[in-house]
Every structure is written in structure tokens, then in C-alpha cells.
Amino acid sequence: MSRAGIIAWQVLISVTLAVVWEWGYDLHERVPWLVPDLLDPYFVSKPSAIYDQFLHASCLVDKRGTWNGWSSGEFSKCMARSENNLWVATLVTLKNTLAGFAVGTSSGFVLGLALGRSDRLTAIFQPFIVAANSVPRIALAPIIILAFGLGNASKIVTAWLVVVFLVFFNTFEGARSVDRDHISAARLLGASEWQITRTVIIPSTMAWLFASLTPAISFALIGVILGEFIGAQQGIGRMIIEAEARGEAAGMMVAVFVLMIVGVVLAGIVRRVQAYLLRWRPQTVGNL
């Protein structure tokens, strides 16, 4: 199918979904068998209400529905009033996601490399890793909140916990499968043990690390939101919980949409970086 054709279909589907979402429930009285109860705006809100809620939550309009200009100072007053407005929440969640991602990938990489290159360490630590990995991460979240408080630290730790195993297993696999002939070649060209590690083992393991970065960033976001659900003062996860407590479907939906955008942007950036770093491969994975 041509590119234009594909886009036409995508637009058609989006518009149809939006129309059903916006007006579908109006038919509920007349044809109850056709319209499921789930479409009730009380649960899922409506596109128009979500848009209004977005303008409020982001301080772009005031309570009466007039636009807050930059010049009038209304915008900054509104920003100052709420400590978890949409901008702050997004920023906090984003920062913690990136921090958890960074800490998780680097520690997972180091652990995977160390164990992957040492049969002795692997033999010693294997049962612990298997045991730790089999605990559902979500079960540990309350303990982490208790131990690290309601602030950023607990979110970073939750994200780390979700990311570290993923990266660890990938790196471990990669470190095990370094081509023996590459190591021999380096040795014969005069490389010391440390030079072999630096110029052969690390680069060839990196390829496996990079392959785990895209899932890792999504996992980090999940970890942070999970932490925010259980106990937080700021963040998008916190917004969702607050909106739920007030029974505001539109508030939850705004947060969900923002998360969606954050997730897509982060994954997109990571994929670009990954494709660049793996450009030496015969073909890099996907071309998105």
C-alpha cells in the first residue's frame, strides 16, 4: 500500500475512535445493546473533556476558561499555586525515569560483564540472581517507598530494580558469546589482558547492551509510575491517583496521554541512539 493510503487509514481509524468516544454514549439510552457500559464518560471521560482538563492542568486557561497570557502573569501564578501541575509532574517523572534508566543500565552492564566473564562468580551468584529475579518487582515497591521515602530516591530505586535485571541478563549473554577468535586475534596482535577486555570484550558486549536499551527505557518509566502510585508527592503517577480519588476520569486520561507521549519520545530517542551506535552491524534492527 502507498504511504498516503496508509496515512489515510490511520487518520480514518483515529477519527472514528474519537467520534465514538465523544458521542457514542449518547446512544446508550436508545440502543443499550449496541453501546457498552464502559463507554460511560464517568469511567473514560470524553475527548472534549480531556482537552479542557488538559488546558486547566497545564495552567494554560483559568477557571472561567479564558487563556492565561504570558504577559498577565496568570500563568506563573497558576504554576506556583499547584505543586504537582502537569508540567512539574511530567518533569519529575521524566527526570526520575532517566535517572533510573542510567543507574539501571550501567549497573546491569557492569554486573553482566563481570559475571559473564567469570565462571567462578557465576557459580557463586547464580542462585541469588535466579531467586531475586523470580520475585515480581511490584511486590517490592511498597518496601522501597518505606525505605527511601516519598521523594525521588524511591522512584529511582524502583526503576533501577526493573531495569537492572533486564540489562544484566542481556549483557551476561553477550559477555559469554564474545567470539573466541576475536580474543585470539587481539592477543596475537599484542593485547594485554586488560587491553583485550577494553578493546574486544566490552565493545562486542556493548552490542547486546544496546539491544536492551529500548525495552529498558520503557521499563524505567513503568518502574517510576509504579513507585508514584504507591507513595509520592509529585509525578504523573501521583496525578492519576489523585484524579482517581476525586473521581475525575478526565484528569486520569490527561495523565495517561502525557505518559503515552513521554513513552513514545523516550523510546524514539533511544532507538535513534542505538541505531547510531550499532551502525557497524550488517543491518540494524528495524528502521523506525
Binding site: 593485547a191 587491553q195 578493546t199 557497524w280
Partner: peptide, 18 residues
């Protein structure tokens, strides 16, 4: 056994780099 993550020139210069 060329290192696939190095360019041809970096492969050839490997021993010099070491």
C-alpha cells in the same frame, strides 16, 4: 576475524593503538 565494530582503518591500526 576483523573486529566488526571498528572501521577498516581502525582495524588495521589496532596493533599500533595497543
Amino acid at each position: 576475524t576483523l573486529f566488526p565494530w571498528r572501521t577498516v582503518q581502525a582495524n588495521i591500526g589496532y596493533a599500533l593503538e595497543l
